[in-house]
Amino acid sequence: MSIQHFRVALIPFFAAFCLPVFAHPETLVKVKDAEDQLGARVGYIELDLNSGKILESFRPEERFPMMSTFKVLLCGAVLSRVDAGQEQLGRRIHYSQNDLVKYSPVTEKHLTDGMTVRELCSAAITMSDNTAANLLLTTIGGPKELTAFLHNMGDHVTRLDRWEPELNEAIPNDERDTTMPAAMATTLRKLLTGELLTLASRQQLIDWMEADKVAGPLLRSALPAGWFIADKSGAGERGSRGIIAALGPDGKPSRIVVIYTTGSQATMDERNRQIAEIGASLIKHW
């Protein structure tokens, strides 16, 4: 068994979910400061990975656009189908120029040979490839089937209604394609530690997140040497930005962190900087 497989195998399969305990108010002060700096709502939650206990939260039950963070949930649904014998990671999917949508850096290079389901999930999570996400959504039956998958695992909040790139529209008070920080954190924890997926599929999902190549300016920029992070970022219209992550010291994950913001006029660089500063405070007061 590899070190990575050993790491995931040791994560307990508890489903406990406790009331908020504000253990590190310094980080919450930074979250509130980020709201002021961005002129926007910021949602934040931090869960203990083992117990599910809420360590910190701010606007945990307010809706925020999911943006590309939904791609982790999508690949979780795909892996669930693989575990059930309904899908194969090695199955090759062919597509055409007409299937390509905005921001598809991986799929646009494989119009001739197509891509396997495994490769599409990797592209969707590590590079946030939008066409890969749409092709994967098609394999499970579309956005409503992803919502149904989430409902079946106990998440009655998170919903996907549209395809890429329309799902990033982020209209105020529009519940389409949204989640809440508390719901997303709990669902991510179930996918990474629960019995919904096999150990091999849980390991595959966290491996894809660990290999994320487009979230460098966010939490990763604040991470000390030797820390572990597996994450997925998202960006949308109307100043929307977000990240979901499993992270921790000593090379293994010990907490789930979810950060969303929407409604800002700030630049992407400024949104990234504020999320990175929240991450720096989190690590400082770990």
Rank of each mutant, 00 (worst) to 15 (best):
I3D: 07
V8I: 15
A9G: 13
I11T: 08
P12V: 09
A16S: 15
L19I: 08
L19R: 05
P20S: 09
T27S: 05
K30R: 09
E35D: 04
D36A: 14
L38E: 06
L38M: 11
L38W: 08
R41G: 05
R41A: 08
G43V: 13
Y44H: 03
Y44G: 01
E46D: 07
L47E: 05
L47V: 14
L49G: 04
N50D: 15
K53G: 13
K53S: 10
S57Q: 15
S57R: 11
S57C: 09
S57E: 12
R59T: 01
P60C: 09
P60A: 15
R63E: 05
R63L: 08
P65A: 05
M67T: 14
T69S: 05
F70Y: 06
G76D: 00
A77C: 11
A77R: 15
V78A: 05
S80R: 12
V82G: 04
D83V: 02
D83G: 04
Q86Y: 15
Q86P: 04
E87N: 04
E87H: 04
E87R: 01
E87S: 05
Q88N: 15
Q88D: 14
L89D: 04
R91V: 05
R91L: 04
R92L: 11
I93V: 11
H94V: 12
Y95C: 02
S96L: 11
Q97E: 14
N98D: 10
D99K: 12
L100S: 04
V101H: 07
Y103C: 06
P105A: 05
K109F: 15
H110R: 09
H110Q: 10
L111R: 07
D113S: 15
D113Y: 07
G114D: 04
V117S: 01
A124P: 00
I125N: 01
I125L: 10
T126P: 01
M127V: 08
D129A: 00
T131G: 10
T131L: 05
T131S: 14
A132V: 00
L135R: 03
L136G: 01
L136A: 04
L137S: 04
L137N: 03
T138P: 06
K144S: 14
K144G: 14
K144I: 11
E145L: 11
E145T: 11
L150S: 05
T158G: 04
T158N: 00
L160A: 14
L160S: 08
D161Y: 04
R162G: 09
W163E: 12
P165E: 07
E166G: 12
E166H: 13
E166Q: 08
L167P: 03
N168L: 04
N168E: 03
N168C: 04
E169G: 14
A170L: 10
P172I: 15
P172V: 13
N173K: 15
D174F: 02
D174Q: 06
E175P: 11
E175R: 13
E175V: 15
D177V: 01
D177C: 02
D177H: 00
D177A: 01
T178N: 02
T178V: 04
T178P: 00
T178S: 13
T178D: 01
T179S: 12
T179D: 00
T179C: 04
M180L: 13
P181Q: 00
P181H: 03
A182D: 13
A182G: 15
A182V: 13
A183L: 07
T186Y: 15
T186H: 14
T187S: 12
L188G: 03
L188V: 11
L188M: 12
R189A: 15
L192V: 07
T193A: 14
G194D: 10
G194C: 07
L197A: 03
L197G: 03
L197D: 02
L197V: 04
A200I: 07
R202G: 08
Q203L: 10
Q204L: 12
Q204R: 09
D207E: 15
D207G: 13
D207A: 14
W208R: 00
E210K: 13
E210R: 14
A211T: 07
D212H: 03
D212Q: 10
V214G: 05
L218T: 03
L219V: 11
L219Q: 03
L219R: 02
S221V: 12
A222E: 15
A222T: 14
L223H: 02
L223P: 02
L223I: 14
L223G: 03
L223N: 03
P224L: 03
P224S: 06
P224D: 07
P224R: 06
A225E: 15
F228G: 05
F228L: 07
D231G: 03
K232A: 00
S233A: 06
S233Y: 00
G234S: 06
A235R: 02
A235L: 05
E237D: 13
E237A: 13
R238E: 09
R238I: 09
R238Y: 14
G239M: 01
S240N: 09
S240W: 00
S240E: 08
R241V: 03
I243R: 00
I244G: 01
I244N: 01
A246V: 14
A246S: 12
L247V: 14
L247G: 00
P249A: 07
P249G: 04
D250A: 12
G251L: 11
K252R: 12
P253R: 10
S254L: 11
V257G: 00
V258A: 06
T261E: 06
G263E: 12
S264N: 05
Q265L: 13
M268G: 07
D269T: 13
I275Y: 04
G279R: 00
I283T: 07
H285C: 14
